[in-house]
Write a protein that binds this DNA or RNA. Structure first.
Lengths: 127, 127
DNA sequence: TCCAATATTGTAATGATTACATTTTTATAT
DNA sequence: ATATAAAAATGTAATCATTACAATATTGGA
């Protein structure tokens, strides 16, 4: 998969990518670092930043900035929307809605981010 | 307007609100500070943060987090979308699109943010 | 006018991200 | 296998927006 995106595979790149594939929870840099560092004793946070930057530039992952201080990463790069639960904080992938927009003359739109906020099913049941 | 939102009017609150009403450019905290501090010599950045927090909590303004490090503020609190020009960086208010979404069972949606990215009319003409 | 509540101010702390110099690893040619 | 040059990883220090907090100032009502 790395090679398909023109990225030279290294141990660190492979592990970060594997983590993202296995954990579709939109982890932060720190989530990834905390998860991987016990197995990779010399792993550095900076490396995670570097790897994610490389992966994002090649289009292998996508970053999402939803309502908070730190950036999250998503292995799913197809067009989709995100839902953030304001109770538990989890971020879910949702289908992109059909949108009918009247873009004023002259605006050239390239892409769209859609973020929903509310309560997720699990938290809704708890109340 | 402040009183309508249950906020005690102070010089600082009034000036920040006036600035937002007069500058619909989605300014950052720093934009506001740089603009107002020459006229209010003792003005503090912290005050701007405090004022904006108060204004946002009362629903008088809305904050937007679009693709960057610092938060922007918008006096227009009605439901609308935002367009960010990737060339000049300006943020524009746009009409909220008609959206037809299939929200999976159990998700309780409260509000939605829609962000467009692309080239604004002015920058499109320049090229 | 006085007093208590509230707001403002300035400094210091926080915390995510980046810059950068050093070390390590990798791929290739010898 | 060895040497070498390019690329990647590492760790420390810097940056910068935001927040915490304590001190000072302002406000509105008794």
């Amino acid at each position: 998969m790395l090679e398909r995106h023109g990225i030279r595979p290294s141990v660190q790149r492979t592990e970060v990518l594997k983590y993202l594939i296995g954990h579709r929870t939109h982890p932060t840099v720190d989530d990834i670092y905390v998860a991987l560092s016990p197995k990779m004793l010399t792993l550095s946070r900076t490396t995670i930043y570097n790897v994610l930057k490389t992966l994002e530039e090649s289009g292998a992952v996508r970053s999402i900035v939803i309502d908070e201080k730190n950036v999250r990463y998503d292995i799913c790069v197809e067009d989709h929307a995100h839902f953030k639960c304001r109770r538990c904080g989890k971020v879910f992938d949702l289908e992109m809605p059909q949108m009918e927009m009247k873009l004023p003359k002259g605006f050239e739109m390239e892409n769209t981010d859609v973020y929903y906020y509310g309560i997720c099913p699990e938290c809704a049941l708890k109340q």
